[in-house]
């Protein structure tokens, strides 16, 4: 089976972000980058499929400047077989434009299954996978938490709010991966060494038209400093009031 995984390089989400002077990006100074979480799960799922079958090939594809090669190498060190960088230096926030470039690369690859993360954890747009499927004319199942591929049929489970669905579709297909399906493995040093020798092709990205433009980034209102509401159970009514009116979680 031939599998493709689309991955995105994103900054580490644990730090506090600062907005860059341009106002449309984050200040990248001191940030570390890694594969978007859901894309990591997708790569893991694809690698596990080939490992289990003892056959098949996983291609990882990422769009971006040359630094994405580092992220592609990480996927290779996890066990992907080859990588493609669609080179494009400026940041793109339009999912359709990105999907156009990815679909152009995927179109003639003869892939049975294309996997993406459910969303990129930076832009949180959730559009790329679905657009790729539409552009390629393939069926798609989004945000799945379980997957099996058997006899040319994909069977999947999707978590809903307080419920779940079982879904199936024929191959070739596109799926987007939610959490809970597999944790991205921690690459072994052996894997890292092997990845250095695996093929990584660089091609120009053929982006689609941009119709969704990021105008501005802002930091949400600072979290107010914590406070002691009171002592003992007498403080409960005030706490409930704050949860309701201030935090709006009740």
């Amino acid at each position: 089976m031939k599998l493709a995984v689309c991955i995105k390089r994103v900054p580490d989400m644990e730090g506090r972000f600062k907005i860059a002077a341009s106002g449309t990006g984050i200040d990248e100074a001191g940030l570390k980058y890694d594969m978007s979480d859901f894309d990591g799960y997708a790569a893991e799922v694809a690698i596990q499929i080939t490992e289990k079958a003892g056959a098949g090939e996983v291609t990882v594809i990422s769009l971006g400047p040359d630094v994405v090669q580092e992220t592609l190498r990480k996927a290779l060190s996890m066990g992907a077989h080859r990588a493609v960088q669609l080179k494009h230096d400026a940041p793109v926030s339009d999912g359709f434009a990105v999907a156009t470039a990815l679909a152009a690369e995927l179109k003639d690859g003869g892939y049975d299954l294309i996997l993406c993360g459910r969303m990129a954890v930076d832009t949180q747009n959730r559009s790329t996978g679905v657009f790729i499927a539409e552009l390629l004319g393939l069926p798609i199942i989004t945000a799945i938490s379980q997957l099996s591929v058997d006899g040319g049929v994909v069977k999947a489970r999707r978590e809903l709010e307080g419920a779940y669905e079982l879904i199936e579709c024929p191959l070739p297909a596109v799926v987007t991966i939610d959490e809970g399906i597999a944790r991205a493995r921690y690459p072994s040093l052996k894997g890292i060494m092997a990845a250095k020798k695996k093929p990584l092709d660089v091609k120009p990205a053929q982006l689609g038209a941009i119709t969704y433009q990021l105008e501005k980034m802002e930091l949400p209102a600072e979290r107010a400093a914590g406070r002691i509401v009171g002592e003992g159970k007498d403080a409960v009514p005030e706490l409930v009031r704050l949860l309701k009116e201030e935090a709006k979680v009740l």
């Binding site: 644990e14 921690y186 072994s188």
Partner: peptide, 28 residues
Amino acid sequence: VLGESRFPEEVTPAFESMEQRGSPWAFD
């Protein structure tokens, strides 16, 4: 760890955090 990537799964966040944030706990 280096050869087989076999270790208790709860260690992964510590490894990743040391790599990403220079501390085994995910603090800024």
